[in-house]
Design a binder for these strands. Sequence first.
DNA 1: ACGTGTAAGGTTAGCGGTAACTCAAAAGTA
DNA 2: TACTTTTGAGTTACCGCTAACCTTACACGT
Lengths: 345, 345
Amino acid sequence: MTSSSITLADVASQAGVSKMTVSKVINKKPGISETTRQRVMQAVDELGYTVHASARALAGGRTHTLGVVVSSLDSQYFSELMRGADMTARDAGLELLISTTRASHEHRNIGRLAHGLVDGLLMVFPASLAPYERSLRALSLPVVVIAPGTQASAEQQHFPSVDADHYSGARQAMQHLLSLGHRRIAFIGGPPHLTPSRERLRGYREGLLTASIAPDAALQVTSDFSQRSGFQAARELLALAERPTAIFALNDVSAFGAIEAIKDAGLRVPEDISVIGFDNIPQASQVFPALTTIEQPLLEMGAAGTRQLLNLIQGVGAVTDRLIVPTELIIRASTGPLLSVDRRM
Amino acid sequence: MTSSSITLADVASQAGVSKMTVSKVINKKPGISETTRQRVMQAVDELGYTVHASARALAGGRTHTLGVVVSSLDSQYFSELMRGADMTARDAGLELLISTTRASHEHRNIGRLAHGLVDGLLMVFPASLAPYERSLRALSLPVVVIAPGTQASAEQQHFPSVDADHYSGARQAMQHLLSLGHRRIAFIGGPPHLTPSRERLRGYREGLLTASIAPDAALQVTSDFSQRSGFQAARELLALAERPTAIFALNDVSAFGAIEAIKDAGLRVPEDISVIGFDNIPQASQVFPALTTIEQPLLEMGAAGTRQLLNLIQGVGAVTDRLIVPTELIIRASTGPLLSVDRRM
DNA sequence: ACGTGTAAGGTTAGCGGTAACTCAAAAGTA
DNA sequence: TACTTTTGAGTTACCGCTAACCTTACACGT
């Protein structure tokens, strides 16, 4: 037979103890003498025993697996987030089951997940929770939401969540540009129905206010997070009679588009126009000029969300309803001091 | 109680049949009359029953789950590949469990996966299979490798694999450039220990040969797949006394770097230099000028790999040892006909 | 009328663990 | 010494499902 069919009973007889004793050793339960423990561990090693996940789940009522539900795998952010989640889960002895939800049968899927596959669910970047709401409640399955795209509406009970501090991050970005002397600062925003867009916009506006700068509607343009739309947004800004000296793009990718547009127009970054992004995706440090940006602590968010979920499952430890993790200003080469006006034609 | 504790027995009593009958209906086993089947299905719907995955796995010996082992989630290619795998797996009624292997305890992990969690393994983009080889064999677990980075060495028994036709893809790229009249064609290559790099290089060389063009070592430069290194590689090429009229970059990302370098040098794409990439990543169509490239059929590769694995698990259907899926030339705006020499400076 | 084949459904016995309890021996107590 | 407590380990009874076998009823040919 294959080595995969080694069972508790095999280890037990090898070690000369009962199955239950082996089980207790494996699960680090108390009530086992050190001598026995070592004998059992030796048998485990000799036989190469690993616990059978399904059997354990069936008998124990816990699957030792966390489900991750994500709408799309190609998000730039997902990978880093998962690193954090993975580390935390592994440390706690749990597996991570990543599931992509597609089309409209999400709730059906969730049901299947819940029933004997996972102990809890991490919802990552859900555009909306509405489709899941009902089945999630019905299953009474622990759920933590990471980076909810939309704000939970008032009437809707929301789940514990973890998110970056979009507002303060935007304030940091503005603070940076203002301290460089910029006053004519444009904002490339995003879809207004998404909370991150709105919060970053709020940070932009309030940043201007603290410097007593009146917001200029012409300096607020909209993108859809893509490089192409960042490119077009920047083009509009460059066509302005009085063009901005700095651009705050609400994400790195649209900042790339903006830089491209600026170069295309024969201008230089940051000498003519400073550009700051948001997210600090890996490419941000690779492009030329390297992008100054606001880092979302994705790894930490993944880890924190997972910790919350573990607490929820074990019913011990505090669970924060809404955990906001701080962002960080990463200064690179795409921002620079405002040069005197006459220097710039 | 929660609705998740609905079991076969509940459905059985609701429908007035035995557990086994319900099980047969659920699993579409023969020997059930249409009348009974409908009665059972109705009870299933009314109660909202879903099978308990662990119980089924324990009793049936099959987990109905496929494991996906991937070294990193941030690959541009992974998402599309997974779409293909996911669709195929779901159609067959299986879940996909995505697991990232980190650090050195891969084989330990694989053991845990195998033992009651998955029926088979899809290894995606493994740089090398060596670390897994032993545990995989020991577990006698069905395995299919998607896009092996390195060629399985002769002495090493290899697993069934699926890969894109890197060689023919490179030939397609060359054919395209040659048909546009280019003869001085440069190649931005990759790390020579990786099979895709080598195969694409081979396609480049043989493409030149078919046009009776003698390879010029100065036109073959190396990158590490990154945009930055593509940028630098292109810079070297531009500094040549007799610079190329077309560049074939072995992946899209380094092609982006090349285009950046060309623009930086004040030249235009494709008027001065044509650029073709490889992979057809989503951004390829978003950049300016849109990138002509060779598409790797990732979705199809994911689906094909999964189909192979399913065949392996069920022990029926043919399993091809080494399945090579064809690539496709995607013509966009970054390549153009060779303009007469005097037109260019 | 009789076996015999077949379709529809039921019965039994686990899969490999764990929770909850029981029990025996060692250790503490007066 | 006799009694209680503690500690270490074993027993029992499932968890929810399915493989494999078994039963029944009816159709069929001869």
